[in-house]
Simulated scan of single mutants.
Amino acid sequence: MNIRHDWTKEEIQAIYDTPLLELIYKASTVHRQYHNPNEVQVSTLLSIKTGGCTEDCSYCGQAARYHTDIKVQRLLPLETVLEAAQKAKDSGSSRFCMAAAWREVRDNRDFDKVIDMVKGVNDMGLEVCCTLGMLTEDQANRLQEAGLYAYNHNLDTSEDHYNNVISTRNFSNRINTIDNVRKAGITVCSGGIIGLGEKDADRISMLHTLATMLKHPESVPINALVRVKGTPMEDMPKVDTWDMIRMIATARIIMPTTMVRLSAGRIEMSEYEQAMCFMAGANSMFSGDNETLLVTPNPSLSADQMLMKNLGLNPMKSKKEMAI
């Protein structure tokens, strides 16, 4: 199968609408062509600065304007972050992701501290990922020079639906940051969230944007909305797992070499439902011993280890480890 970057929305829609079992079979076949089906990339995500964000993302409990139970936490000390990274590595993670609830990166002491964190985690042999909000080209270059392997900046949803979810920035801001990351030679992690009141056409449009980039994102997280009390989307219905499976399988078929990450929302899935997602082409997930994904619930490390054991899955080595 050739790697394509010229997918049409109609072609992606046709894949998405394929009868489910046939869709899973096709996605699993593509997955086995490009990946080891018995390996899953285990990533750990740490919130290094929590809450107090000036954005108004309707799903996010870290937005300062919403009244949630989330405790605001200033930027963590370097030693705390490095201890968490070492613990993640010891538990089988190959990628360590650091998230700060910022609208954009500012050239100040906090960014200098993040640079030190990137250097320290990189020295451990882990793939280092950050999600810090919008980035300039110069800031992306600084992160790359410090050893950053990946930068996460999700599209969240389609361009047409975007303003229904967020008003404090626009869709083009997302694309600009991804472009700056690419120019700096950092790999891209970008996906989205389903369950934000979007239509199927919006899901197709979001996947179309990713799949028609000059270079596909190396990682595409597929998130199910986790409803946070106090946010405008607290009463949205639970995302149907079948919809998650369709998104994962479609992403796998149109972006064959990409790591498709089963991300937020796993806490509401059974082992059987998660197994179907891996069968449909997911080969990455977030795990950790604090049972949270940023500020929302996530399965425990022990539960994930049992899941992988039951499914016969092994943690993938980092690209840095494989290069040795």
Rank of each mutant, 00 (worst) to 15 (best):
K319I: 12
L210N: 08
L301C: 06
E268H: 14
M213G: 09
A249I: 00
E218T: 01
A282D: 01
R266P: 03
Q305D: 10
M308W: 14
A280G: 07
S300N: 05
I267A: 12
I245R: 03
A280S: 12
T258E: 02
Q274P: 02
K199V: 08
D240T: 03
M247C: 15
A251P: 07
A303F: 08
E234Q: 15
M244P: 00
S219N: 08
D202G: 14
H216V: 10
A303V: 11
I204C: 04
E218R: 01
F286A: 00
V226G: 01
S318I: 05
K320P: 05
E291M: 11
K320G: 04
I267E: 15
K319D: 12
W242E: 14
L313C: 06
M259G: 07
T231E: 07
A280P: 03
F286E: 05
C277F: 03
D235K: 14
E234W: 07
K215F: 04
S300F: 02
E234S: 10
A280H: 04
N283S: 06
T212S: 00
F278R: 06
E268N: 15
S300L: 06
I254Y: 01
P297E: 01
E321V: 13
M308S: 06
Q274E: 15
K317C: 05
D304Q: 08
E321G: 05
R266F: 07
M285W: 00
S205F: 01
G265C: 13
V260I: 15
A224M: 15
D202A: 13
G312C: 03
M316G: 00
A211W: 05
T292A: 03
I253C: 02
G230R: 07
I222Y: 11
A224F: 08
K199G: 03
L210R: 04
S287R: 09
K317S: 10
R246V: 10
A251N: 00
L301H: 09
M276Q: 11
N314I: 12
V260L: 13
A249P: 05
N283T: 04
M316I: 03
K238H: 11
L294G: 03
V260F: 12
L307S: 01
L293D: 01
K199S: 15
P297W: 03
T257D: 13
A264L: 04
M269K: 05
E273V: 09
T250N: 07
D243R: 09
D289P: 09
P232N: 00
M269T: 09
L214F: 02
G230F: 07
M213F: 12
V260H: 10
E198D: 13
K229V: 10
N283M: 05
M244N: 08
I267Y: 10
I254F: 10
D235L: 06
P297S: 09
V226C: 07
N283R: 08
W242Y: 12
L313E: 01
N283Y: 03
G288F: 04
M236F: 15
S318Q: 02
R266Y: 07
T296M: 11
K319M: 14
A275P: 00
